[in-house]
Design a protein around this nucleic acid. Structure first.
Length: 357
DNA sequence: ATGCATGAGCG
DNA sequence: GCTCATGCATA
């Protein structure tokens, strides 16, 4: 950490008062900066729409937005605007921020619900469109270029769209695009990303996986050229504190992990060969379900010290790992001792001895 | 969750 | 030199 001193550039960046943190694109991570910088993105376009549709999330978002709008408003940056910035709105974690969201397709996402679990967020939207494919990468560069020069008025039609609202999301443009039959980046739609991020988080939690686990798991999931990511990145993805492009690039990866993880979680007995995307081979801590636990207790009552073979047989029946069963018995025996000593101190004779095993 | 930093790529 | 993606360390 201490690193050397900051390079000049760094200083500039850091100190950069302006909204765009200069460069640091990612930096808009800093919520403060972001807030300041963002001029309210494409919001208006959908504003009307949203109003009608309020979901819980939206309600929250609405509140949030008001806040933000109030804050920024003027902040346009003079010479250069960082487009990225806009996309991300707000920073913060949690709640969905934007008011709009919905309506639009989440096809991809929908499928994600194999388990059927995430009910809460059930998508409200059902629009049929959205083909989605991402050509993100391609757009990437082009975008970058653009950014640098930036263009105020130009709207390059470009692809990736990101930049914000500047062009692509502008109402006029949107209309034009629609007319042309092109879809503005549906899949790169910030609102969709936002929706995905939120669902992603909920499902991850449901799987009992930490952000760090996801990062590590990605290395196991052998997606072409995808290595592990840090907890930081996962966190940022979930809280939408990454650049628009970065979000788009990561989305498919995380989506793949999510699907794989849910699939594995589903069959406890997953194929041995599967890479194992879930936390390390299993979890650090196994949790035995109630039914299994009852069975174990029953076995324990009969034979507190089953032989290795017996344990294997029990494990087989309960579909648990042998080691898990063995440890359970060990723990159970210990527990029993404790209970005895604590509950019936007098019985042990003295109580104080307490722990004399 | 985030501040600070690094390094890759582009120009 | 800048932007961007990412990570480490820490609150």
């Amino acid at each position: 950490m201490t690193m050397s001193m900051y390079s000049t550039t760094d200083k500039m960046k850091m100190s950069a008062p302006s909204c765009f943190p200069g460069r640091y694109s990612p930096s808009y991570r800093s919520s403060e900066q972001m807030r300041r910088c963002m001029p309210n993105p494409s919001g208006d376009i959908f504003a009307g729409i949203n109003d009608g549709i309020l979901s819980r999330a939206e309600a929250l978002a609405a509140v949030d937005i008001q806040k933000h709008q109030a804050q920024h408003v003027h902040s346009q940056m003079p010479s250069q605007i960082k487009h990225d910035v806009m996309y991300h709105h707000h920073t913060m974690s949690g709640p969905p921020q934007r008011p709009l969201q919905m309506h639009h397709s989440m096809d991809q996402l929908d499928m994600l619900d194999p388990t059927g679990q995430m009910t809460t967020l059930a998508p409200i939207s059902e629009s049929p469109l959205t083909p989605t494919h991402q050509h993100l990468h391609g757009s990437y560069h082009s975008m970058n270029h653009m950014m640098s020069h930036h263009h105020p008025g130009t709207l390059s039609g470009h692809t990736g769209g990101h930049h914000g609202h500047s062009a692509v999301h502008h109402p006029v443009i949107t209309a034009a695009v629609a007319a042309a039959g092109l879809h503005p980046d549906t899949d790169t739609d910030p609102r969709e990303l936002e929706a995905f991020a939120e669902r992603f988080k909920q499902r991850r939690i449901k799987l009992g996986v930490t952000q760090a686990d996801v990062g590590k798991a990605l290395a196991n999931l052998k997606l072409p050229g995808v290595g592990a990511l840090s907890q930081s990145t996962i966190c940022r993805f979930e809280s939408l504190t990454l650049s628009h492009n970065n979000m788009i690039a990561l989305k498919p990866i995380l989506q793949a992990w999510l699907e794989e993880a849910e699939a594995q979680a589903k069959n406890k007995r997953r194929d041995p060969d599967a890479p194992s995307v879930l936390p390390a081979g299993e979890k650090k801590r196994t949790s035995i379900a109630a039914p299994e636990k009852r069975s174990l207790e029953a076995y324990f009552a009969v034979q507190p010290r089953p032989s290795g073979e017996k344990i294997a047989a029990i494990a087989e029946k309960l579909d648990l790992k042998k080691n898990v069963v063995r440890v359970w018995f060990c723990n159970q025996r210990q527990k029993q001792k404790r209970i005895v000593s604590s509950v019936t101190p007098s019985m042990t004779g003295h109580g104080s001895a307490g722990f004399g095993y």
